[in-house]
Design a binder for these strands. Sequence first.
DNA 1: GTTGAAAAAATATTGAG
DNA 2: CTCAATATTTTTTCAAC
Lengths: 175, 175
Amino acid sequence: MELDDTDRAILRLLQEDARTPFSEIARRIDMSSATVHDRVGRLEEAGVIEGYHARVDPKALGYDVSAFVGLRVEQGREEDALERLREIDGITEVHLTTGEYDVVMRVHAPDIDDLREIMFDNVAQMGGFARSQTMIILGTDYDAVGVPIPEGDDSMKESPGEFGEGTRSDSGSER
Amino acid sequence: MELDDTDRAILRLLQEDARTPFSEIARRIDMSSATVHDRVGRLEEAGVIEGYHARVDPKALGYDVSAFVGLRVEQGREEDALERLREIDGITEVHLTTGEYDVVMRVHAPDIDDLREIMFDNVAQMGGFARSQTMIILGTDYDAVGVPIPEGDDSMKESPGEFGEGTRSDSGSER
DNA sequence: GTTGAAAAAATATTGAG
DNA sequence: CTCAATATTTTTTCAAC
């Protein structure tokens, strides 16, 4: 689906606050609320808007520990492994990655002891992993809501950062 | 703030769908909508509900590449480094961690070339890092919305996974 | 702390142009 | 895309349990 500036403006507002009334969105982007309603509907149908969710503080729910876990998967057991990882309680993300690990996942646990249980009694025990690295999050300095949605310019291609030439050839890993 | 089962039921519904009408929540948890309204207000004020956000598909916005980046920070430059990382466009999360890296961050970019620009022209250039590892996400097998919110039982302590004894002593890293 | 009811305000939705 | 009418939801209030 093709997005124009108006769509992105709407997405930016809803990503920031999903409860922004259509009437207010309409005011801010200078259009009628019926139009906003129309566009939001199309964005939802097209899957651009995947859903509306309340962000809940994990600590309030008793999750005091969170970690990234890198896993090295034994050859040929990838499918198998991924299937079962998502079933484990506390694992909220499972990604296949390049680099040092084959899988990087995010884990939430009430405390260190529970994290240990998840890692040893669940993950390690299911087998198929050559090694793991647990990166416990000591603090989160920045955690944006969603992804940055550029305003104005319709072709965001060209301006990922502030600069923009750079002529190095490798794609950068392990330096 | 102390949460009871009712609060958690409300949180679960709103985390799943922030637009669930209070009246429907009331029906589902078998309470009056006035109570739901009351509780939601308190949960918001207490900061348990941090906000309501639309989840937008990064690909629809032109972000085809995402990666986790591990950074080793040179001694004494932590403060400095963190401050500036969050300013870099495309970096959506910055965490301090234990393990192999001091910092783990999440990056979103339109394509590989833009990721390279972010890493070399922005991150590497700011200095203060001993080395970095870029783990490009090849695929995401599972990405839950928020954290799991247990139902029923009021004391979630004790049942992080399915099992629950385990008597090993170290906290597990590099195996 | 919760309920039920009820009225007012705001918002969302729909249909015609 | 807009305007105007309609339907739904949220908010607020209050007496009662």
